[in-house]
Design a protein around this nucleic acid. Structure first.
Lengths: 237, 237
DNA sequence: CTCGAGCGTCACGTTCCCGTCACCAGGACC
DNA sequence: GGTCCTGGTGACGGGAACGTGACGCTCGAG
């Protein structure tokens, strides 16, 4: 759920502050201190999910950067939030003349910026993207609706169990260490024992019933969700 | 989908911005910088399809303009979107008393405004006199009149409650986090705690009576309006 | 000026989810 | 077969999340 935010801002202090705050909100952050740097950073892997762009930069105007981002295939759809000083041609910035999706006026509150970043990310996630339905053998989950079924019977999962199942499903066939699961499902700053994973895997298996066999235990390594649905039936018998 | 949008807005910069952005979205645009101008522009040929109206104008209040538009045959059915400053008597603006069809809170994002304009145009194109009713099980709401019924009995909803219900209905079956609801219903810079959502969900449920059960709570995730009216009686899809 | 509607916030109670612990089962390796 | 060690399992306490009632504030109506 956490996304990558590119901050293009030449005032180092402000950039650092933003970096810190965004990270503590669970975002990944990439910094650029000039326009050219920013353009490069916008097109390097992985493509940022949102770009925060200062209007006043030493080398290139923010408006110019924004136009170029819109002319590049990779960044055409990437939401841009423009930071402007007060009373600065705000009106022309937002919208399609330049192509920024939103703006904040300096001095802005970090909280507000984060709200707007979140809103933009939600919109992108909603609009495009993979179908929210994931099917796998007898399993089916719907991310938008936050529901899960086994053999067309719905099972009630808690928020954590749902995230865990989703983590398994999206990495099926590959081993996941407990640490990896912890950082994926619980978050970076999880102050939680690795044994907690065991407990929740158990609970998940219980609720999945027979389909719980999709989750394999690899002693000394971690867990793995089966790569192919048939494997469960064949090995089971 | 093209259409003619009349923008009544005294801040020239903002008006120009809107004009530019609307044009680049394929709309035709007519500008008016005062209330009287606006009234004249609303009744000249061709009649606008949508009117964007600032609440604060130098000569006439936006509410007054809206009333007069509603008293004039030519513009009685024309959808009006009101632009209000934050915390400004939103309540009376929408609904019978003034008769605006929708509103945005300044500073609004142009994208949001365009989305709302499109929504209104779709509604008009669907058929002139036909009320835009959304039915769902025992529920029925009329977006034009901002009225709602349960089992053919009307329930009095406030502007906020109606927006909340509408947000639920238009995204039925999908989870909505409190943050998402806040930015959709309250506006993006609402300085409001997420618990406020809880309170209004409670009030909405109360007024809906039995039908309040359509709104499900997903602990740790958010709220979800039922996807199918009869889901209570189980039976998988 | 008074009143009430509408809305945001707070405090309290309850539910139930989650993290941890202790105990046990069953491989792995010798 | 014995021992160590990893992981399964059941139980339990704490606390987060939510529902709910009450209160105060603002603003317009009368």
């Amino acid at each position: 759920m956490s996304g990558l935010v590119l901050v293009i801002e030449d005032e180092v202090d402000l950039a650092t502050t933003l970096e810190y705050n965004l990270r503590s909100e669970g975002f990944q952050v990439r910094l650029a201190h000039s326009g050219r740097q920013g353009l490069a950073a916008a097109t390097s892997d992985p493509t940022p999910d949102v770009i925060v762009l200062d209007l006043m930069l030493p080398d290139l105007a923010g408006t110019e950067i924004c136009r170029r981002l819109r002319e590049t295939d990779r960044t055409r759809e990437t939401p841009v939030i423009m930071c402007t000083a007060k009373g600065e041609e705000i009106d022309r910035v937002v919208g399609f003349e330049v192509g920024a999706d939103d703006y904040v006026v300096k001095p802005f509150s970090v909280r507000e910026l984060i709200l707007r970043i979140r809103a933009l990310m939600r919109r992108v996630q909603r609009g495009e993207g993979e179908p929210s339905l994931i099917r796998f053998g007898r399993l089916k989950i719907d991310r938008d609706a936050h529901r899960a079924w086994v053999d067309d019977g719905e099972i009630g999962l808690t928020a954590l169990e749902f995230r865990l199942l989703h983590a398994f499903l999206s990495r099926r066939g590959r081993v996941q260490t407990r640490d990896a699961l912890l950082s994926d499902v619980w978050g970076i700053d999880a102050d939680v024992t690795t044994r907690t994973v065991d407990t929740h895997v158990k609970r998940l298996r219980e609720k999945l019933g027979d389909a719980g066999a999709y989750i394999e235990t690899l002693r000394g390594v971690g867990y793995r969700f089966k790569g192919e649905p048939e494997e469960a039936a064949e090995t089971g018998t």
